[in-house]
Simulated scan of single mutants.
Amino acid sequence: GKYVNAMGPKRTLIIGLIFLIITQALYFIEGSLGFLMFTRLINGVATAVATTATGTIAAYITPPERKSEGISMF
């Protein structure tokens, strides 16, 4: 959360999505079990970064008077 505030949600989302695409492509490379576990770990971190940024963006763009409705729809 603090990195989203430091870098901005849009930039954090773009970085997270880039890492997510890269780690998804790494699944097609044949390697050892250790490589697969490392890829899975980095993929989980990238997923966490991207989903945190999208939640923050959803909270920012929702109007204050409809905040609860907008967050629940997200």
Results as ranks from 00 to 15, higher is better:
5 N>P: 03
19 F>Q: 05
23 T>M: 13
6 A>M: 14
45 V>E: 02
53 A>G: 03
50 A>M: 08
9 P>H: 05
37 M>Y: 09
61 I>K: 00
50 A>V: 10
41 L>R: 02
64 P>F: 09
27 Y>K: 07
29 I>L: 12
49 V>W: 01
7 M>F: 07
36 L>K: 09
5 N>L: 13
12 T>L: 07
18 I>N: 09
43 N>V: 02
3 Y>S: 11
62 T>F: 03
13 L>Q: 02
3 Y>A: 13
21 I>T: 12
20 L>G: 07
73 M>Q: 12
59 A>S: 11
61 I>E: 06
62 T>K: 03
55 G>I: 01
25 A>C: 05
71 I>R: 09
72 S>E: 12
8 G>P: 05
39 T>D: 04
9 P>T: 09
51 T>A: 13
9 P>R: 06
23 T>N: 14
52 T>C: 09
58 A>T: 08
59 A>W: 08
6 A>N: 05
56 T>Y: 05
57 I>L: 15
3 Y>H: 08
48 A>M: 12
65 E>C: 07
61 I>S: 03
18 I>A: 14
66 R>Q: 14
9 P>N: 13
69 E>M: 10
29 I>Q: 02
8 G>W: 04
46 A>R: 07
42 I>T: 10
29 I>F: 07
14 I>M: 13
53 A>R: 00
59 A>K: 11
11 R>W: 02
23 T>S: 05
44 G>T: 09
10 K>L: 11
52 T>L: 14
40 R>V: 04
72 S>H: 08
51 T>R: 09
45 V>K: 03
69 E>G: 00
13 L>W: 01
72 S>M: 12
18 I>E: 08
2 K>E: 06
24 Q>V: 09
37 M>I: 15
67 K>R: 15
42 I>Y: 01
18 I>C: 12
38 F>C: 06
55 G>Q: 06
42 I>F: 07
60 Y>L: 15
6 A>C: 06
24 Q>T: 14
11 R>G: 04
15 I>L: 14
69 E>T: 10
3 Y>F: 14
63 P>W: 02
7 M>A: 13
45 V>P: 01
7 M>W: 08
59 A>H: 10
14 I>A: 14
31 G>T: 08
52 T>Q: 12
29 I>D: 03
48 A>L: 13
7 M>S: 09
63 P>I: 02
17 L>H: 01
51 T>W: 09
67 K>T: 06
35 F>W: 05
56 T>N: 11
17 L>F: 07
28 F>C: 10
15 I>Q: 05
72 S>P: 00
64 P>I: 08
57 I>P: 01
50 A>E: 07
43 N>T: 12
18 I>P: 01
54 T>R: 01
41 L>Y: 13
24 Q>N: 15
65 E>P: 04
19 F>R: 04
18 I>S: 11
36 L>Q: 05
65 E>I: 14
26 L>F: 08
15 I>N: 04
60 Y>F: 09
67 K>Q: 14
61 I>P: 00
32 S>Y: 03
68 S>L: 14
16 G>S: 02
37 M>H: 02
48 A>T: 07
24 Q>A: 15
16 G>M: 05
69 E>Q: 13
66 R>D: 10
33 L>M: 07
13 L>H: 00
25 A>R: 03
16 G>R: 00
13 L>V: 05
43 N>I: 02
68 S>M: 11
46 A>G: 07
9 P>I: 03
51 T>F: 15
54 T>N: 02
33 L>D: 13
38 F>P: 00
